[in-house]
Design a binder for these strands. Sequence first.
DNA 1: ACATAATGCACAACCGATTGCGCAATACTG
DNA 2: CAGTATTGCGCAATCGGTTGTGCATTATGT
Lengths: 339, 339
Amino acid sequence: MSTEAPKRLTIYDLAKLADSSPSTVSAVLNGTWRSRRISEKLATRILSVATDADYSVNMQARALRRERSGIIGMILPLYDNRYFSSIAQIFEAEARKRGLFAIVSCTNRDPQQEQDAAQMMISHRVEKLICTGATDPDSIARMCQAQGVETINLDLPGKLAPSVISANRDGARMLTKAILDRLKNCGRPNDPIIFVGGRIEDHNTRERIAGFKEALDARGIESPENNIMPCGYSGSRAAPVLDGYLLKHKALPSAIFVNSTITLEGIARWFHDQGHNMSEIVFGCFDWDPLAAVFNPHFLMVRQNVPIMVERLFELMEGARYTAGEVIEIQPEILGDLT
Amino acid sequence: MSTEAPKRLTIYDLAKLADSSPSTVSAVLNGTWRSRRISEKLATRILSVATDADYSVNMQARALRRERSGIIGMILPLYDNRYFSSIAQIFEAEARKRGLFAIVSCTNRDPQQEQDAAQMMISHRVEKLICTGATDPDSIARMCQAQGVETINLDLPGKLAPSVISANRDGARMLTKAILDRLKNCGRPNDPIIFVGGRIEDHNTRERIAGFKEALDARGIESPENNIMPCGYSGSRAAPVLDGYLLKHKALPSAIFVNSTITLEGIARWFHDQGHNMSEIVFGCFDWDPLAAVFNPHFLMVRQNVPIMVERLFELMEGARYTAGEVIEIQPEILGDLT
DNA sequence: ACATAATGCACAACCGATTGCGCAATACTG
DNA sequence: CAGTATTGCGCAATCGGTTGTGCATTATGT
């Protein structure tokens, strides 16, 4: 810990130790030695010298010379829900399988941080950049294009790069349908149902609202426009919305379409604080959390298919032909007692 | 997207464009130009050329030459619970504040993956490596030492590097005490209480068991050794343990000390599957999840103080004097209706 | 035995930044 | 106006690998 300048071993040191040359050592260590006709004997000697000297290659130098970093980057709003955290985790695992090193950065849904992080990643010469849930994917795509880095959008689509997203409209329609079935089973098929959470500016929320409306229309149920309340993603935004509804209608809605687990958290807190009972209301949440699900088996939840989404992502990266604005939609799954 | 070899701009290109020299361009771009007595006029010219050519420095080259990467690494078991995900998130934010780039890798509680990831990070020349919840922190520390990289342990302590962890024993004692208070308030002060989850091999679980016992002892309550069941971290391990208890005692315990949110998930699933009612039992969980908390306000939960832990971590990195095996313990907090 | 081919390895030029040093031009001093 | 100090900038070496090329040495063919 206290020794100053430990001076890491280089291939030059190894060359001396093994009584050989740097180029030979390099070839042996990176596996190209056969094609360079290095004798097996010398190769094993160098290899053993390297291992017992605890040598490790300097990726900076390798990347510089090869003009390929072997790194792929991802920017992500947050880690703190199951959807995003599993995206990060699976992305990393898939990258590793392919011999790539994944670096992930959280940008807190802040366009400036998104830009900065993307710039950082470009500086580190990532080979591709995945923009997950970016508030402004297109300006990042522009940046990347200017510097010759391919981008792919995940979760939220953009116009300047291909995108892999959930089938939000379908998912929302299925979720709403399940909610309506549940209401019907309770003998209240025409009771009011509201939509809470998300941002109207973002594509996913708009699609989910569209799916919500389609499902209602299909049953001939009228949906007053002001029962749709995309009040943002923060949990604290839910309380005023519910207060407002209660004040106006003197009663709670019979069902709530909740647009994210973070909104669900805010709603649950409000119910608890106000002393209302959640079990009297049908909840459908577009997003899935295992703890929420296990405590509320009657909740209907949409689980987005992260493994498939990430699989498609890598297919795109690995050269499947695609066009800039192309959007690949992955079907999510409805969980909860659908009886 | 289709242009082959876009050839990124270098300081040599900029030098030509600005009619200057690479060394001058370099100095201007990295901010050392004043000390190199470059005229303000030339500096602004170069800067404007660089910005409208969308130049970005090649960190690989910079790192190679400077022999400092500006990168710090962290290995982490998983992202999929609030404790670890907030560790990653706060670590990243703090690194960014200090002009460092954080790279985080999940290692799935697998010693081999831990080793591999650590080796990867060393190859990328991280300046420090944080081992979070590592199953075998010491062999990683040894590896790092051999290659001149400082390590710090987080969450689980090691002998060969300083560690920042939660005060597990204190937290467990406080949590157990809160559980006992709750039982007493229900008029059942001497009812059985069990401990479920975690691995006996890991330091944190052992400490928590010790704290659990201390709290019981302090009240003169006897705790049969086989009421303590560190059955692992996986959620599915909980079911057989509860089955066994029920079979033996013909009744459920009145209180359960749950050693992680993942175990809590398994327990909740078992209660649901078996048709038992969780609200008749006092639950205390060593770990915190906001959704679990909001759905079960009566749950007692321990929230580890991640912001402070990460703060201490950076203090250690920034050269506070420390000795190899030193352990810094941070007090966690008990949440839940403590009335 | 001699020409040719194959084998085994090392040389040296990169990749793109950083930085010690030196040189010219200008400013200042007496 | 000669001599020194300061200003402003570029040269070239360097970080640690990679890779095109070339030169001995040994093997093969006739």
